[in-house]
């Protein structure tokens, strides 16, 4: 393995000190749990609803990269591609609570669901008011009539952006939850995988993609996609992704959207812009107007090759949330 690592079993332990020192003006680790990363802005200004998230490591900048001002207040850090402990989620909730309640906004994965459930049981006994939103924006992971089975992918970034903004505006827990839920309900994503990734402790790629082919609907943990097709060019990929996402919500003429295109780790940002050019023209052809775009590595899977496309349909509230300023290690918006 040609990797910049020390002990393959200790990636998260070895990464955190570097991340925390490099971003010390924005975040710190909880003194109670090294796997709980907390925004330095918690407790500043008027009490507000706390925002908590968390998930497996290996998805940089998800999840810790979005911890900071006006986005996520505390993040539970798991092993590579593995849910954080209930204990880490619990400490996140305690750290983020300033008496107005806490919104836990996370992705639909079996481990996260169980660990959050266990954490909630324990903190509710301490009198903290907690509610959750579970992201399920990936159209490839289940049919549209089974949204509760769909996994959360890059659309989670927009859920945190909107939930965090609503909390910063002084929204109640109910309002923050409703806003984050609306954000994810209005969001759809799909990924295309071109090459696998290797968890260093396992040592070999755990699936393979033949040269000259691509997997549509690839998962963020190397879950194979829903179909394998001959490799298309960027325009062909864009057309297929736009159709998959638009037909699902559906998005149509007159809609105003946010576009989020993310690489899966190994695909150059330049190629993401090549893809985005066609995405923008496809959307224009459909009469959909693009209010704001994010193109870059926003939610990755180690060194997996490929891209994801996420669209969120806007209304006045979500537009205001998307425009709200944030200051986090990964996303700075003035």
């Amino acid at each position: 393995m040609q990797r910049v690592i020390n002990d393959p079993d200790m990636l998260v332990e070895d990464m955190l000190p570097g991340f925390l020192e490099a971003n010390k003006s924005l975040v710190h680790a909880s003194s109670e749990n090294p796997r709980t990363v907390v925004s330095n802005f918690v407790g500043q200004g008027a009490p507000r609803v706390g925002i908590v998230s968390g998930g497996g490591s290996g998805h940089w900048p998800a999840f810790i990269g979005y911890c900071g001002q006006n986005m996520v207040d505390a993040v539970a850090v798991g092993e590579i591609f593995s849910s954080p402990t209930a204990k880490a989620f619990e400490q996140c909730i305690r750290e983020a609570d300033s008496g107005k309640g806490v919104a836990v906004l996370y992705g639909n994965y079996a481990g996260d669901n169980m660990n959050v459930k266990m954490a909630l049981r324990r903190v509710e006994k301490e009198g903290i008011h907690v509610a959750t939103v579970v992201a399920n924006d990936d159209v490839a992971s289940a049919p549209s009539d089974q949204r509760d089975r769909r996994r959360g992918v890059a659309g989670e970034v927009l859920m945190w952006k909107c939930g965090g903004a609503r909390a910063a505006m002084g929204g109640s827990l109910e309002e923050v939850i409703a806003c984050a839920q609306k954000a994810i309900d209005n969001t759809r994503s799909i990924g295309i995988g071109l090459s696998p990734c290797t968890i260093p402790s396992y040592g070999k790629p755990n699936f393979s993609i033949e040269p000259g082919s691509m997997e549509v609907g690839i998962g963020h943990h190397g879950e194979p996609g829903i179909k394998v097709e001959p490799l298309k060019d960027a325009n062909g990929m864009a057309d297929e992704m736009v159709e998959a996402v638009c037909s699902d919500l559906p998005f149509g003429s007159g809609d105003d959207v946010v576009v989020l295109i993310s690489g899966l780790g190994a695909t150059p940002v330049m190629e993401q812009y090549i893809l985005s050019a066609r995405v923008f023209s496809d959307l224009k052809d459909r009469g959909i107007s693009v209010y704001k775009s994010y193109v870059g590595n926003w939610f990755t899977s180690l060194e997996m090759g490929g891209v994801t496309l996420t669209l969120m349909k806007l209304d006045d509230e979500l537009r205001e949330c998307v425009d709200f300023s944030v200051n986090t290690p990964a996303l700075v918006q003035l």
Binding site: A86, G111, N115
Partner: peptide, 12 residues
């Protein structure tokens, strides 16, 4: 398993 491992297998 619950406090230090996480994932799906920790809670299960």
């Amino acid at each position: 398993l619950v406090d230090d491992i996480g994932g799906s297998m920790g809670p299960i």
